[in-house]
């Protein structure tokens, strides 16, 4: 009974991870702008990969493998936002403005920092 419950939870988590990955890929293909694509590719994909890793950690036969999977999940949740932030900041400094945006708070703060 306990094994059945564990496997069912692992299946639900893995299916959710695959769904989030698919949604993220559709977002990256359909969105009009580099910043919106970064938004889709970071949040949904990190969530999807973390769900997959948690499902595999539930399904793993021993606790050492579960510890490794938790390690990968923590590493992904730490590094994926850093990489996406670096990409978006590089795009902004390279001179790409967001399409369909009216207020540019980040540009104002950069101008203020340059003046002082």
């Amino acid at each position: 009974m306990s094994t059945l419950l564990r496997e069912s939870a692992a299946f639900v988590l893995m299916a959710g991870g695959a769904f989030f990955s698919l949604a993220s890929v559709i977002g990256i293909i359909r969105f009009p702008d580099i910043y919106t694509r970064i938004h889709a590719g970071t949040k949904a994909l990190t969530g999807g990969a973390t769900l997959v890793l948690l499902g595999a950690a539930l399904y793993a036969p021993s606790w050492q493998i579960s510890a490794k999977l938790f390690l990968i999940a923590a590493f992904l949740m730490a590094t994926n936002p850093i990489a996406s932030h670096a990409i978006s900041r590089a795009c902004y400094r390279h001179g790409m403005k967001p399409v369909l945006a009216f207020i540019d708070e980040y540009g104002n703060s950069e101008e203020k920092r340059d003046r002082t």
């Binding site: 991870g17 590719g41 990969a49 990968i72 994926n80 990489a83 990409i87 390279h94 790409m96």
Partner: peptide, 17 residues
């Protein structure tokens, strides 16, 4: 080019999963 970088980053995460 940044679009390609974002796509490559997404491919990396998908390959890990």
């Amino acid at each position: 080019i940044p679009d390609r970088v974002v796509a490559l980053d997404s491919i990396n995460t998908l390959v890990i999963a």
